[in-house]
Design a protein around this nucleic acid. Structure first.
Length: 638
RNA sequence: GCCCUUGUAGCUCAGCUGGUAGAGCAAUUGAUUUGUAAUCAAUAGGUCCGCGGUUCGACUCCGUGCGGGGGCACCA
């Protein structure tokens, strides 16, 4: 006589035990049609699980995340089943759901090809048409191990071996085909629907460990309707259109080449963009009390040995040998250099907090497979700073940095920022009491920022806790940019000290912070965020002046000169093309403003403005134009 | 670094099973002088990523190196 409590608070009593499907039927016919899985007292179950006792039940449909997740999970199973039908001898391993889809890892000698994906998809549709019922069996761990070993599924057997002795495992059958699985699953393969697509195939290490053999991973996406699938594929397409590597080439901003993989060749326009961001940041930092310095790119090996980098990060460092046989390292970080600057002259507590900043170009030898356009490079420029302060000043400094960061992101069009706070790792240096202090000071600053934050336990740096600033772009993707770290280690290692009020020498705390992080990476993100359509003040080429015909070339040249001398970057297009052609060309290259000059404009000493992505025409007196737009340039760099 | 994949004109790409390369756009020149998203025509452009091999002959097949792309691992 189970009494079932529903999410809306209603209780239903039944004379006999019954399945989730029967419960759904009792609630409504339409629900029973849409029902995919359920939860019983918060635990997810198959719909044909028999409910015997009183409990709380919630039925999930494709409108619930739990429902869509199950569809993806089932699609992963069917992928594995299809692969094994098509390619006998292929071993299955794991096939979890991920954001927007799933993947399944297989062990097979021959690589899967793109055509194989089509074949697999067709086979999957066939399996779904067979509408095979799902059944669940519970086996003993040992039976499962020997069963999968006999089948030649050594990876599956290995997974089960890692389950504790004596525990039972559940096996799900879709017809004959079966897999170890926790479940739950849809009641038959027909329930999956055909709104899925296998998207790519790649390599992946067994158990995520690069010491292990490499498996083949098939990625797929799966949804509950054709529309959702189409929308998803469209979103992917949109993201591809914004790819900064594609736009960087089209807009002539930068390029890469074989001679220096992972290092940017900035072209005139890209470098202009870069310099505009540097100028902006320099201005903001000057106003925030930072002192800009510049330190050597090449420093003797002994310094890196002392700082600990040589031992711990040597694999990522470029080194150079000079004719006198000395070994120098090309800096991968600016901190040791900044400590050297701090160490010049005696520092008093009155000098603190001392904020040393540098647009420092660093080199890190990244694994070749990690390189990715501007987003992951081997040579990049940090808007780096190190704040030397006392323990008591940590919280306030952290809060000031956080506010500065948010303000700057806002200026650049990023409204939504979240924080990731990481505390002490297992392997660390320093006294636990000092860690307590550092962590609480930083966490206090995080809370005071009132931003959404997550805690990454044990993910801090070995020298102190850290916060990472993650911003969300125009199409909802998250990018980690800025970082703020409390360092209780390096200053001591490199003999930094200050004289405190009581006359005693003390070691300062050092805060590492970068706001853009890497200028190169930030520009990549900026390009994708704006899809190349930069706001006027950062656009590397802001204006093109277009004469209607040759008769107005002189006027257009004059306008162009005036604009340039007012600090606006502009070019005049005197090519022998008609107006339509030029408007099309410059619109496609994403120039914010086009100024059209013809008889009307000459007569009234004005320009006609066409803004990017509009077809409105605005006539403006030339002097007013200069005033308005040079003010716009200055407004955002105060 | 590992797996898969890929490298042809400035750009985007075509080139079937081996017989030394083509298109569109861009560029140049000429005509046209244009009022808000492609005017017409002509001309010029290539060590087919590098190195080796097979072959009478290689852009094409094989090996190898380098680079790009998708992932995995890495990201101090």
């Amino acid at each position: 006589m189970p009494t079932i409590k529903l999410p809306d608070g209603k209780n239903l009593s039944f004379p006999n035990s019954l399945t989730g499907y029967e419960v759904a039927e009792k609630i409504s016919k339409s629900l029973s049609k849409q029902a995919l899985i359920m939860s019983v007292d918060g635990e997810q179950k198959d719909l044909n699980y028999k409910i015997k006792n009183d409990c709380a039940v919630k039925i999930f449909t494709s409108k619930d995340q739990e429902g869509i997740d199950t569809i993806r999970h089932d699609t992963a199973h069917i992928t594995a089943m299809a692969v094994q039908e098509l390619f006998p001898g292929t071993q299955v391993t794991i096939g979890p759901i991920i954001e927007n889809g799933f993947y399944y890892d297989f062990a097979r000698k021959e690589p899967f090809t793109e055509e194989d994906l089509n074949k697999i998809e067709n086979k999957m549709k066939e399996i779904i048409d067979r509408d095979l019922p799902t059944t669940r069996e519970v086996w003993s761990r040992d039976k499962a191990i020997s069963h999968f070993k006999d089948k030649g599924e050594i990876y599956k057997a290995e997974i089960i071996e890692s389950i504790p002795q004596g525990e039972d495992v559940s096996i799900y059958f879709h017809g004959e085909w079966h897999d170890l699985c926790r479940g739950p699953h849809l009641s038959s393969t027909g329930k999956i629907g055909k709104y899925f697509k296998l998207t790519k195939v790649s390599g992946a290490y067994w158990r995520g460990d690069s010491n292990n053999e490499m498996l083949q991973r098939i990625y797929g996406t799966s949804w509950s309707s054709q529309k959702d699938l189409d929308d998803y594929l469209k979103r992917i397409e949109e993201a591809e259109k914004r790819d900064h590597r594609k736009l960087g080439k089209e807009m002539n901003l930068f390029h890469f080449r074989e001679e220096s993989p992972g290092s940017v060749f900035w072209h005139e326009k890209g470098w202009k963009l870069f310099q505009k961001l540097v100028a902006y940041m320099r201005n903001r930092q000057d106003n925030a009390g930072y002192k800009e310095v510049n330190t050597p790119e090449i420093l003797d090996r002994s310094l890196w040995e002392k700082s600990g980098h040589w031992e711990k990060y040597g694999k990522h460092m470029y080194t150079s040998q000079t004719p006198d046989e000395k070994i120098f390292a090309i800096k991968p970080m600016n901190c040791p250099g900044h400590i050297e600057v701090f160490n010049q002259g005696l520092k008093s507590y009155r000098d603190l907090p001392l904020r040393i900043t540098e647009f420092g170009k660093v080199h890190r030898y990244e694994p070749s497979g990690a390189l990715h356009g501007l987003l992951r490079v081997r040579a990049f420029t940090q808007d780096d700073a190190h704040i030397f302060c006392t323990e008591d000043q940590i919280t306030e400094e952290c809060l000031t940095v956080t506010n500065l960061i948010l303000d700057i992101y806002k200026d650049l069009g990023f409204e939504k920022v979240i924080l990731k706070y990481a505390d002490r790792p297992e392997i660390r240096v320093g006294d636990d009491k000092v860690w307590d202090k550092a962590e609480s000071s930083l966490l206090e600053a995080v809370k005071a920022s009132k931003l959404e934050y997550s805690i990454n336990k044990g993910e801090g740096a070995f020298y102190g806790p850290k916060v990472e600033f993650v911003l969300r772009d125009a199409i909802g993707r998250d990018w980690q940019c800025g970082t703020l770290q409390v360092d209780l280690n390096l200053p001591g290692r490199l003999d930094a000290s200050f004289v405190d009020k009581d006359g005693a020498k003390k070691v300062p705390v050092m805060l590492h912070r970068a706001l853009f992080g890497s200028l190169e990476r930030f520009i990549g993100i900026l390009i994708e965020h704006y899809a190349g359509k930069f706001p006027f003040w950062i656009a590397p080429l802001q204006v093109i002046v277009i004469p209607i015909s040759e008769d107005f070339d002189d006027y257009a040249k004059k306008v162009n000169r005036k604009i340039n001398s007012n600090g606006i970057t502009s070019e005049v297009d005197l090519k022998n093309h008609n107006l339509n052609y030029k408007i099309r060309e410059h619109s496609l290259s994403k120039i914010p403003l086009l100024l059209i000059c013809g008889k009307k404009e000459v007569d009234s000493n004005s320009v006609t403005i066409r803004r990017l992505d509009t077809n409105k025409q605005e006539n403006m007196e030339l002097n007013l134009f200069l005033k308005t737009f040079s003010a716009l340039n200055k407004a955002s760099s105060n």
